[in-house]
Simulated assay, not measured.
Amino acid sequence: MTGSPGIRRRTARLAMDLLARLAVLGLVALMVFALPRLLPGDPVQAMLASDHAQNLGPAELAALRERLGLTGGWGRQLGDWLGDLARGDLGRSIRHARPVAALIAESLPWTLLLILGAMPVYLLGGALAGIQAGRARGGALDRGLTGFVTVLASIPPFVLAILLMLGFAILWPVLPAGGALPLFPSDRPLVRAGQVARHAVLPVAALALHEFARFYYLARAEAVSLSRRPFLLNAEARGLPPLRLLVDYHGRNILPAFVARLSDSLSGLIGAAVIVEIVFSYPGIGGLVYGAILDRDYPLLQGATITLAAGVLALNWLIDAALAVLAERG
């Protein structure tokens, strides 16, 4: 069969990509183990600084270090952690005295809520704005939108978050300044869902604005290129409705480029989500990682980071697989 060699090549390429990502995950594991230990202090010193262990003697401190797995050198600690990781055990948080997996399971849905809320906004918004600007290349709309997006792209996500908080939670207090729920959340599911959505508006807006520029420029460039193609000129000459031109001609041709760019976007989006969550005191992975850094909570920092890295690499691999299928179909 003519299709079999192509399928075998695609499968082999995807298998090699998977192995490469597993190698990257291994490097991430080594880095997330080593880098926190290069910071000044350790979990026991952090406890002493926060009055948790002020009255412990030298023998008790040594026993505490042994119980926390901080003795025996880096080689032993790394071997113990990798062994636990191979069994699916992310360890136990020193600061929270709870399994790391349970803490991640509680925090991850909040981060996913922000990411899944922001993605449709910047994907659809970037596509629509970019296509309209590209179709009117050099016009007033193109110059205005491109100038605005250029300024927007130069603003870091934490500054965007602060500006949104300042504008819509302090100067014009129409939205909450932080958190995921009010102090006294409702017991009624619909009301509670509305409270969650209201608290997520500003963090979602900060993430969407951060990624909007990336897809606006991509959609604009693709629209400019498509505007010179004979099939599109023919469709416009036939007087097809603008909505059909937008969806069937521009949208379908821009889709593979958007899927390809999603692979890069996810990494930046998750990094931005961590920062935005810290600014808005949002109970996601960002706050968990930030607290683990301050407390030198090695198990929590290692578990949260390796979970995020594994998720990003897996999603990137799936996106590359989808892109290969789209490219094969033309």
Rank of each mutant, 00 (worst) to 15 (best):
G134S: 13
H52E: 12
L202H: 01
L181F: 10
R198L: 02
G284Q: 04
L68V: 04
L301G: 05
D17H: 06
G72I: 01
P241H: 09
V159F: 10
Q195E: 15
S4E: 15
P283M: 04
A177V: 15
I7M: 11
D84N: 12
G57R: 01
Y249H: 14
I7T: 13
P185N: 04
L288F: 11
T146E: 06
G144N: 08
G72K: 02
H96N: 13
R261L: 11
L108V: 15
R95L: 12
V151F: 10
R192H: 12
S225V: 02
A235H: 02
R296Y: 04
R21V: 02
L39N: 02
G167S: 11
I278M: 12
P203Q: 02
R76S: 03
A235E: 00
H52D: 13
L68F: 09
L175E: 06
G3Q: 13
L14C: 05
I293K: 00
S227C: 08
P182H: 15
L152T: 10
A101V: 15
R192V: 00
L152I: 13
A309V: 08
I162M: 14
L318D: 06
D42K: 04
V32L: 08
W172L: 13
I104V: 10
P242M: 12
L108P: 12
P156H: 06
G178C: 03
I104A: 01
R135E: 01
L164P: 07
R135Y: 08
R214E: 11
V149K: 00
H52S: 03
Q195T: 05
L19K: 08
L68S: 07
N234D: 14
P203A: 09
L90P: 02
R296V: 06
Q132C: 06
V196S: 06
L22G: 07
L163Y: 08
P36M: 13
A235S: 03
R261C: 05
V191E: 09
S265R: 13
W110Y: 04
L145V: 15
